[in-house]
Every structure is written in structure tokens, then in C-alpha cells.
């Protein structure tokens, strides 16, 4: 999907926050990923390059640096389970297993029906409420393994 006029208008406004337009690139990539299919496609890279007056390779180099940007298509709902120390100490592995079981996807993969993408992530800054996972940007904390199927089951 290509950059829409509505997004371009939004970026015009966004870039007024900064003395140099380029600073808007990362927030803009977030908006693209949210609005244009859940990943940063080659078309988005080219369009953002044109909008920000950069080379496509520069946009690619930025997008590929940040773990929150996906450079290939993934399942519809993103399930991210924290694997770092505070969560690991309180059973993150069981949360990951429960998520694998429910979605049928291994870590770093999408489920066959395309509904879920499952990944392990580093500390999400919710360590005192470990273990935790993030589903489509929303935090779910103080988890028990049994909570996972319920939470994922409620997602439309």
C-alpha cells in the first residue's frame, strides 16, 4: 500500500515539531505500519524516502535498526512475550509455551491461518508485573499461563 494523502498531511503537521524534517521519520514509520498493513513494505520505504527527501536505502537502514518495525508481512495480531530477566524469573517460558500452543506459531513466525504473529521480546519496562506480554500494543501483566488462551481467545 502506498502512502496516502491523509498520512502525508499528518506528516506535514508532525514535522513542524522539528527544525529538520528527517526527525519525523521514525514516528512516521510507526503511522505507516499502523495504517498500511502492519509492516513496512518496499513501497512504503520508497514513498517515505520521497516524502523525507532521502534515499530509499537510508529509510531502509533506519527501519531495519528498530525492532518495532517489521520488514516482511506478518500475522494480523502481534503477540510479544517478554523474555528478559524479571519475566524469566517468574515463568516467561510458560507464557511463551502457552502462546505457541494457542496460536500454533513458533517464536518469530506467524500462525498458518495468518491470525497471529508470535515473538519473544526484551524487557518492556513492566518488570514488577512479570511475567507479561504485549498484544497489538496493549500490555497484559501479572500473567498466569492459563490467562494466555483467554486473552488471545477474546481477540476478534
Amino acid at each position: 500500500m502506498a502512502l496516502t494523502d491523509a498520512l502525508k498531511a499528518e506528516f506535514d503537521n508532525l514535522c513542524t515539531k522539528y527544525p529538520h524534517r528527517r526527525a519525523g521519520l521514525i514516528p512516521a514509520l510507526h503511522r505507516c505500519q499502523e495504517e498500511l498493513g502492519g509492516w513496512i513494505s518496499p513501497e512504503i520505504i520508497t514513498d517515505c524516502a520521497e516524502y523525507f527527501k532521502l534515499e530509499p536505502v537510508e529509510v531502509y537502514s533506519v527501519a531495519s535498526f528498530y525492532p518495532m518495525f517489521f520488514l516482511s508481512p506478518i500475522g494480523q495480531h502481534v503477540v510479544s512475550v517478554c523474555r528478559n530477566i524479571s519475566c524469566d524469573l517468574r515463568g516467561a517460558c510458560e507464557i511463551t509455551s502457552a502462546a505457541t500452543e494457542h496460536t500454533g506459531a513458533a517464536c518469530g513466525e506467524s500462525s498458518k491461518d495468518g491470525r497471529f504473529y508470535l515473538e519473544e521480546v526484551e524487557c518492556q519496562g513492566a518488570c514488577t508485573n512479570a511475567p507479561m506480554m504485549v498484544v497489538d500494543g496493549k500490555y497484559y501483566e501479572d500473567l498466569e499461563p492459563a490467562d494466555v488462551a483467554r486473552i488471545l481467545g477474546e481477540i476478534q
Partner: peptide
């Protein structure tokens, strides 16, 4: 940016 494992106060 609060990403030091264990740290969750700024949030």
C-alpha cells in the same frame, strides 16, 4: 526510553 531490565518507574 526506560529499557534497562528491571526498571519500570518512569512509566
Amino acid at each position: 526510553d526506560e529499557s534497562e531490565p528491571g526498571t519500570c518507574k518512569d512509566r
